[in-house]
Design a protein around this nucleic acid. Structure first.
Lengths: 244, 244
DNA sequence: TGTCTTGATTTGTGATCACAAATGTACCGA
DNA sequence: TCGGTACATTTGTGATCACAAATCAAGACA
């Protein structure tokens, strides 16, 4: 297996690293309600550690824009808006095109094969309706590609952006995913990579990101807010973290 | 005056914010030797605070890749290499071109004027050989432009990248700066912006970054390391943080 | 009923302490 | 002279405490 969601903090044995991973995974999985306030002590209780490591973990997430810290010094799960999502879309297109272009030039046969294999696994998971591994494999596909570019700084920036896009990619299921748009693009992408056609590879990855995130953006309500799927039966005590 | 180096942490009255700003400015100014190990207690002593806020400030810098944390849990000032610098160059080109393109579309007259004014101030500082304000104004010019793009996420990412490029831009003085290459590009850039010529504006900002950072990269020694200028008379006790 | 005030509680911040891992140093044997 | 071991010191980590700012909950008054 060895999924290793984040390549950078793999072997972090510290408590702070543990809390960080716990929070990051919870955020990615959409286990928090956007706008929800997180208190240090409640997280400390959930993870069975003292305040100290919790504080440092939260501070890191804040630095990565995965959490927001308000002037009144309370931390909240960021809300997603169309504006923000479209901005993330454009930044991701710029950076992931760059990474794809670099990868197209230097990828090895083994890396082509790995991509192909992951694409097959995505198709298989999709056939049996396994949304969880479908999502995981999509992420794996993208990062296998970007890692092949051999650009650690670029990779780190892209990882942070994915952390922000976080749970909202769940909204692609089942409609967008079912449309087969992603499959077609991925096929063309692999073909372009194999041919070392840099321009075409860049175009395809850009298409993939653009169509997916534009679709998610189209799901916004009238006030521009976007609510992630797979949420934990929304808390009764509304009003607290909601409209502000 | 009101320089406000980082728009995000402007009004941070906390001790941790103070330490963060202190460290960030010291890093940007090249007051630390690359590879130098920083101890929590020494920074706490320098800033007259306890370990707690120092730890959180350092953690933030680490998250922003402005400091490195080794597996043996010691934090060091990152060393710059040609490889890293060229990667930063390409990422910066991608993102700052994007920001410039957006800005070109929506900039107001007032913002054009502000850019023009800063360009004049750069020229004036240069005439009197004032390197310090020259550098500061160049930064101001770029960020006035990027801020005009009205893309907060993009701006935050760009800020982090500049933090990494940090003191190495000092190496542009006096040779590259004296070549007048930057001045010519900036003039064309402003013209393109005024004409709302997106493609040309993007091309010019890309040229600016590419030529500047490629020049810095050319200053690397035979082993690929790059040493910043304006350093504090290198510590006698070598061997500690040097070649490893 | 709605608004302001007052007091109780929650919550983030910073300092301090204890401890273990990492580092440095002196001493020993080959 | 070189390599390794034992001990002392430094240094990051995590827990705990004190405190002030923020938040909440009643109660008073209009």
């Amino acid at each position: 297996m060895r999924t290793a969601p984040s390549a950078r903090s793999s072997r972090d044995t510290s408590l702070r690293g543990h809390v960080y991973a716990w929070l990051r995974d919870a955020l990615s999985a959409g286990k928090f309600v956007p706008g929800q306030k997180l208190t240090f002590r409640s997280i400390a209780a959930s993870t069975n550690v003292s305040l100290t490591p919790v504080r440092e973990a939260i501070r890191r997430l804040v630095a990565e824009d995965a959490l927001e810290m308000e002037p009144n010094r309370s931390v909240r799960v960021p809300r997603m808006t169309v504006t923000k999502l479209l901005e993330l879309r454009d930044v991701r297109i710029a950076l992931e095109s760059l990474a794809t272009g670099k990868a197209a030039r230097i990828m090895s046969k083994a890396e082509f094969a790995r991509l192909q294999k992951i694409a097959k696994e995505i198709a298989r998971a999709r056939d049996r309706g396994d949304v969880a591994t479908d999502r995981m494999k999509i992420r794996e596909f993208h990062f296998a590609l970007y890692r092949a570019a051999n650009q650690p700084i670029l990779l780190a920036v892209i990882e942070r952006l994915w952390l922000q896009t976080g749970p909202y990619l769940n909204l692609l299921f089942p409609e967008y995913i079912g449309s087969g748009r992603g499959v077609a693009i991925r096929a063309k992408l692999i073909r372009a990579l194999r041919a070392r056609n840099v321009a075409m590879a860049r175009r395809e990855i850009a298409n993939d990101i653009r169509s997916a995130l534009s679709y998610v953006a189209s799901l916004a309500d009238e006030s521009g807010n976007i609510v992630p799927a797979s949420m934990p039966s929304v808390r009764k005590r509304r009003g607290k973290g909601q409209v502000s």
